[in-house]
Every structure is written in structure tokens, then in C-alpha cells.
Amino acid sequence: MDDPRIGFVGLGLMGRAMVECLQKNGFELTVLGHRDRSGLDEALAQGATEAASGRALAEESDIVMLCMGTSDQVEARIYGPDGILAGAREGQVVIDFGTSLPASTLKIGADLAEKGAVYLDAPLGRTPAQAREGRLNIMCAGERAAYDRVRPVLDVLGENVFHLGKLGNGHTIKLINNFFAMTTACAMSEAFAMADAAGIEREALYGVMSAGPLKSGMMDFIRAYAVEGRIDLAFSVANAAKDVGYYRRMTEDLGRDSPISGAADAALRAARDGGAGDLMVPQMTDWIATHSKKGQT
């Protein structure tokens, strides 16, 4: 696909960084914002065009990109008389870069296919800073021919770009990945909290645990905060609770129980619902240390 016209929906921290990267690489963009116009205004200042609706954006774009927080938000932009689906057409490719429910992804994909458009799920790894530099990890799934057509654009945004098979596989793998990551983070946070309760220095515990096969990048993220007070993992408790909750809904859709995710889900939801949703995940160490005391509500 030569010189594709790109429409971009969702200019939060990650979305605006991706838009910046695309603009620096010479792509012309049509953008659609929400209540917070800061990311939108940045894009407009660099030459982007603002669309009045999802339908108008789709009508002007060869590739439509969405980078949004929840499946509900994605569906709100896809459906309705002014939604992306209403403006979709034959040969168009729509890409969801968020972390969404696979069941929602499959429904949207089927509806877009009726218009001749193709839906790809392509959740992301890494940070907005790396997005600006075109160094994201992109877990793309869906029709291979459509993936091959948009691959040059994905290569601008990503350092590691994967094609993972049929539609929905990207979101499924991302949710499995985030379930495992957040379960590990919560387990390490509790380990430090229990060391505190036992009068053991956190660094002493880490030294023993990291000397064996338990050592991991996630362990080191939690240790950076627990021992040094430094947050290297800027991922909120609210987002973590959402992703683990989506993972559990996915397992239900698959007809499976998920006993292991239950503990992380309960801890993250309790923290979020108790007003700690804006904390970063490594700060669960302090939250668990406080709220694990017997009789603590």
C-alpha cells in the first residue's frame, strides 16, 4: 500500500506518541479526539486534519487505527450512524492497537467484513517513549494479505512486529501475557510485604529469590520500587485490574475456569475500588503491606 491515508482514533499517551512517530516519517493523518484535546492539538499543529466523526474519518482513510482503553470505547467508535463502520469500504484495513476482548474483536471483524473491510487486532508492548522512536512490540493478527499490505506502516511504529494467525489471536495472547505479568507483579509485591511483616529486609529477600530461576524482568520492576523507591513500570492499578478482568472474561468465553488469576484479580480490584486505581503497579507492595493485616478492611 503506497502512501496510505491514515486515520487515527485515540490520542492518549500512547496514541499521541504513535501519531508523532507517523508524522515524523511523512504520513498524512486524519485524527479524531475526545474530551482531552491536548494530543489532538499536538497532531494538528504538525499538519494532521481533524475529522468530525468516525464515519468521516473512515471515508478519508485507507488505514484506520484505534488506540483506546477498553472494548466499550472501541465499539462506541465503530458503531452508530456516525461510526467507523458506517464509513468503511472495500479494501480498507482497520487496526485495533488496544487491549480488547477477543469476543468483541471477532464481532467487529465480522461486521467490517460485510462492508469489504478487514479488521486486524494488534495490541502493543512497551512505552509511549518507545512509540515515539518506532520501537514498539506489535502483536498483530488477522487476514495475512491485509497484514502484508500494512506491514510497512507497522514497521515504522514497531521494532518487533509479529503476525500471530487468525483474528483475535493478538488480543488473546496480550491478555494471557498481561495476566501472567500482573500475577507475577502481585505475587512479588506480596512477597515483599510478608518480608516486612517478618522483619526481613526486602533486599535480602530479593537477593535469594533472584539468584535462582524466579528472576525476571517483572520481579526487577517491583524490586526497583520496593527497595529503591523508583517506578520503572508506569502501568496503573486501574489498567492492570481491567486487563486481568478481561482475561477472566476471555476464559469464561472459552468455557474454562481460571483459578490462578483469581488472586491477582481480587487484589487489583480491591485496590482500584478502594481509591488506589491511579497507583502504579509496583506500588501494590505498599498497598498489600497495609491491607493484608488481619482485620484490615
Rank of each mutant, 00 (worst) to 15 (best):
G26N: 09
L167F: 08
T99Y: 05
A86M: 00
N178I: 05
N160F: 11
T251P: 02
T251V: 11
M188S: 08
T297F: 12
A197H: 08
N178E: 06
A240K: 01
E20M: 09
K174Y: 04
S210P: 04
A88W: 02
L164H: 12
A270V: 06
L279D: 00
C186T: 14
S53Y: 02
D148S: 07
D72L: 13
S38G: 05
D121Q: 06
K293E: 15
G39H: 10
G274F: 05
G255Y: 05
L11Q: 05
A52I: 14
A211E: 10
E42Y: 15
S236E: 04
L120V: 11
A211H: 13
P102Q: 02
Q23V: 13
I63Y: 06
S38M: 03
D253W: 07
T285W: 07
G91Y: 12
G170E: 10
P152K: 02
D278I: 00
Y246T: 09
G12D: 09
G255Q: 05
V93P: 02
A122C: 14
A117C: 05
E59S: 05
S100W: 13
Q73T: 14
A264P: 04
G229T: 14
E20N: 12
H34E: 10
L40R: 08
A113P: 00
Y247L: 11
A185L: 15
K174C: 02
A270P: 00
D265G: 04
R135E: 14
K242C: 05
D273T: 10
Y79G: 01
E143W: 08
G91V: 10
L205G: 01
R55A: 03
G165F: 06
A146K: 12
W287G: 01
I138Q: 11
S236N: 00
D220T: 14
M284P: 03
V281T: 14
A195P: 06
E42F: 14
S210A: 15
E143P: 08
I176L: 15
M182N: 12
D278G: 03
G39I: 13
T285S: 07
A211K: 13
V244P: 06
M14D: 05
S258F: 00
D232V: 14
G245Y: 02
M194V: 15
R132P: 01
E203M: 08
D41L: 13
A56S: 11
P102F: 04
A52N: 11
Q73P: 06
G33P: 00
A113Q: 11
